[in-house]
Design a protein around this nucleic acid. Sequence first.
DNA 1: TGATTCACG
DNA 2: GACGTACGTGAATCAG
Length: 935
Amino acid sequence: MTDKFGKGCHLHLIDGSAFIFRAYHALPPLTRKSDGLPVGAVSGFCNMLHRYVEANTGPEAPTHVAVIFDKGSHTFRNDLYDQYKANREAMPEDLRPQIPLTRRATEAFNIACKEIEGYEADDIIATLSCQAREAGGRVTIISSDKDLMQLVGGGVEMLDAMKNLRIDVEGVEAKFGVGPDRVVDVQALAGDSVDNVPGAPGIGIKTAALLINEYGTLEELLDRAGEIKQPKRRQTLIEHREQIELSKRLVQLDCDTPLDFTLEDLEVRDPDGETLLGFLNEMEFRTLTKRIADQMGVEPPALPEVNTRGGDDAPETVEMPAIDPDSYETVTNADQLAVWIGRIRERGYVAVDTETTGLDEMRADLVGICLATEPGLACYVPLGHKAAEGEGLFATEDLAEGQMAEAEALEMLKPVLEDEAILKIGQNMKYDAKILKRCGIDVAPCDDTMLISYALNAGLHQHGMDALADRYLSHTCIPIKELLGTGKAMITFDKVPIDKATRYAAEDADVTLRLWQVLKPQLHAKKVTTVYETLERPLAPVLAKMEMHGIKVDRDTLSRMSSAFAQKMGALEAEIHELAGERFNVGSPKQLGEILFDKMGMEGGKKGKTGAYATGADVLEDLATLHELPARVLDWRQLSKLKSTYTDSLQTHIHPETGRVHTSYQQTGANTGRLASTDPNLQNIPVRSEEGRRIREAFIAEEGKVLLSLDYSQIELRILAHIADIPALKQAFDEGQDIHAATASEMFGVPMEEMTPEIRRQAKAINFGVIYGISGFGLARNLRIPRAEAQGFIDRYFERFPGIKDYMAETTEFGKKNGYVQTLFGRRIHTPEIDAKGPRAGFARRAAINAPIQGTAADIIRRAMIRMPDAILGLPAKMLLQVHDELVFEVDEAAADEVAEVARGVMETAADPAVRIDVPLVVDAGQGRNWAEAH
DNA sequence: TGATTCACG
DNA sequence: GACGTACGTGAATCAG
């Protein structure tokens, strides 16, 4: 039995979360050498614990000690105030799997490790401090968190371990201007932006302390607020009384947390050398293992076999066992699967790949799951393979022999796939996550080799698995064609024999795991960890949700439009044939060119590389002044486009069960960081022409809801003004002026009041030209003016806004020197062609000038999208679409205005706090029953 | 399969 | 001095 805690006892309480975050941010993202598991924070945490133990061995040593952690994200404070800690950045994904390891580390040091579901560490610390104080003992809280300062006094002190600074009653008074017993009063008034405690607007710690010292307590102050002399202060306190009282309840720590342990349980214990060294060795912390072994006077345990990979100069190829498809296991029963689950739990991570009947995640069915825990160690769990034998009626209905029941397998895998301590690694995980979501499994946390590759090497190469395996593993994957065939005879994966499927499928998981081991360490070496962790990794689940929601599209509207278009096209076609004097395929540019230039002898026919005449819209527009035929062809083409690409094709994309259209966003599609939308592309629904815009009327909200559209106003020009630092443009944006008119005024010396649409149009073309890496030729063609005149405009523009020319020169220079350019958020876009000879260099140069601007805008809306789900949590709203600078939501009609303001706030502040853009970001909002009305 | 055209930001 | 050019996408269609 241990002695009762009491006089003469000294309790140390360590704020575990503070240790973890300090450790995480102080160290580079180290990974365990043998397998790439992120362990940077664990390493820092262990070092801090070790230093703590070393420093507390003398006569002043504590008699009791515990490390206290937070547990669960929802506490009673969230019930009081739903915005409590709402502005916290989400925990970095590579930190999450390390949290359980810090618990194990604490236990390995044989220090009590305590947490209670639904309570903050601070409340547990408060409760223990109170108990220890009442028992007559001393307490030292190892933390610098000012929220804990209210506990100081009566034998309780704090210790800032970093600065080795003791904080007693005087220390608290120095910080807050009041004693510990009044700290909560001051905090209630001053608020706290970190925890999002509102407080009283305009009152900081200084003023708060002044007021509390004058009135004694917060309650007294609020009751007698009318006596305050300063009118503004008086008004604030009266108006915000409720908010202030709420704030006090938020900052007041709870001394009555129900504990499932006693002070006596926290008695200091000597560490067990074997346990401690075993843990440190398992983490592969060589230095610390050796140091502690030396101190204990024992031999350090031998490190496990380690690959020679890792470190800052991680090589691009890694020694691994050869890929051997014959070595993979087919899992056919629960016992086998249990072995794999054990392996995964032991490892802490697993590469996962799903096999399905198709490429459309909303319609494809699960056929099997592959797992890999180390290079060469992979399996395939077939679940939905159909019996290959048998003709006729029963052939495709029967499941093949030798498969687990799908429900049973998923039930076993679900706890692993959802375990936040087990990292799931995939190649294009969004696909697999959506398939599994439809099976009732929320896969998390995830790492994605495709996204890692994109963060590392956008612009250098594509990021599909076959290409990555070729490049980084020198391995050619089994082509899917070999299993499925091509064209009409193509079969679906469920018809592939299981033995063949195992070879192919398990290889995918094996390759994914290998790619992860090669690519993940490069993130840090190439300084794009932040890009991956803040712009890529957290976006994927947001996109998955949007895609699964889909948007409602009215089939009848589209169908009616298709018929109308068909009718008009028929009439136009007859007219065109009449004008041409013969029948031909209007849809064939080749035939059209021959009619126009050979038969009818029109001037200006230019042939392209293939020997065909160019008949693009700009050519036809010029010819339209001479003859009626090209004008009719333009009309016909517009209708043809609208019909085939939109009104016809969109109908085929309406999901039979949801009645909605589910696009797919390709996160690695555009080199600049923009998304691409496919199957169908919902980022190019017509809007510029009146006729086309009507297609948007078919995109509707559910009954009782509206579509809400928010778009950034001129975001790229604002970013240009910021990056190139153009005072005149910045001022125009600050003042909310019409930016194209302001540009025109500045360039041509026309006062704003006398601006004409024509002059403004020219300035607008130049503004866009600048973003695209302007050239005299390009501007001349766009504005249809002589090249010399266009060049004159550009010269004048550079003269008026000299920063632009500097930006262009510096960016080109940077691209040449480094092989890439970057956005304000550190995203890298590679520019390998910039050193090429000939016209290619021109292309690359302009792309390099454009990329930081377009890419920064893309980063900003990504940040907004990542924050949006939390911001609209609890509101009856769903984010459905992204169109580069626009987000579309579906919202209960009654809540539309509120959601619009919340979402606008998120979008306008999306760059904060990472980047301070010194031009305001402005978001315009619209709502309506359909997308045409909302836009 | 590649080139052409055209829808969007 | 000539080269040839606006930036970023996806889908449908024709023609080989």
